[in-house]
């Protein structure tokens, strides 16, 4: 438990506003290795802003984000030189967008998309890169014979799985996910949820997951933070937050879910 007692990612006192609109108000967050943290809330609650600040894409007005690297050295994410941050983003970290088209190169074959992060890390053996790409396509349940097809021939669910393969191919320790199952048919969504859950667990990946869907948080996340107007109004184990909501806003959210 000694190493695991130190969080992988720590945020303290994050503040940010867009004009008069508060996007983050005194937000603290911790993420431990191998843990999945969901950030839930409705549109405009600041959850995507928090994800962007945690991942170093957006600077907070005040507050700090610390990342602990494999050698247990703490890095102030927003004080890191840009090359180091970008290197982090293509190796130790991954980012899964809601819209896979934002992350994928649509004019590059599936195999090239999966292999890009490996090549960016300096891998220079075509055969090895291709073998890794085939392996990862298999892990996200895409047939190996689609490796040379362009992503534009893929369905929405396949694109999202391709994006996940592209992200996980470098075995990141920390993955940021922004509504990874948003915009997909429910049947496709279920398959993707299962895939994410099993991959994250098997690889021991820590993840921050932004979702407006409480059911997604329940199935994937160990812990959940509820955001409203930039504030974390409630946080705890996912089942605690969803089954025993305390804050009026969380109670409203939980009671507003449609029962299928």
């Amino acid at each position: 438990m000694n190493l695991d007692d130190a969080p992988l990612l720590t945020a303290r006192g994050l503040n940010l506003s867009f004009g008069a609109i508060p996007a983050l108000v005194d937000v603290d967050a911790d993420l431990w290795p191998g843990e999945m943290l969901a950030i839930v809330g409705e549109s405009g609650s600041g959850k995507t802003t928090l994800l962007n600040v945690l991942s170093g894409k957006l600077a907070p007005r005040s507050g700090q984000v610390w990342y602990r690297d494999p050698d247990c050295i703490q890095h102030d994410v927003h004080a890191m030189p840009q090359p180091a941050l970008r290197a982090l983003h293509r190796s130790d970290w991954g980012f899964v967008h809601q819209n896979p088209r934002e992350n994928l190169r649509m004019a590059v074959s599936a195999g090239g998309n999966v292999g890009e992060r490996l090549m960016a890390q300096g891998r220079r053996h075509y055969g090895d890169i291709r073998t890794a790409a085939i392996d990862w396509l298999g892990q996200v349940e895409i047939d190996a014979d689609r490796i040379d097809d362009l992503p534009r021939t893929f369905s929405g669910g396949m694109l999202q799985r391709l994006q996940i393969a592209r992200t996980l191919v470098t075995h990141p320790r920390l993955v940021f996910m922004d509504e990874p199952t948003g915009g997909l048919d429910v049947s496709v969504q279920a398959r993707l949820l299962d895939l994410i859950r099993s991959l994250v667990r098997r690889l021991g990946i820590a993840a921050v997951l932004v979702t407006h869907d409480l059911a997604v948080a329940r199935l994937l996340a160990d812990r959940t933070m509820v955001m409203q107007r930039g504030e974390v109004v409630e946080a705890g184990l996912t089942d605690q937050v969803l089954d025993d909501p305390r804050h009026p806003y969380t109670q409203l959210l939980v009671s507003s879910v449609l029962q299928a």
Partner: peptide, 19 residues
């Protein structure tokens, strides 16, 4: 160029070899 991130160029070579 500033960060010597040339993975993308290799993607082009990868695509050529594949095709």
């Amino acid at each position: 160029h500033a960060l010597a991130e040339y993975g993308l160029m290799y993607v082009k070579l990868y695509e050529d070899i594949t095709r």
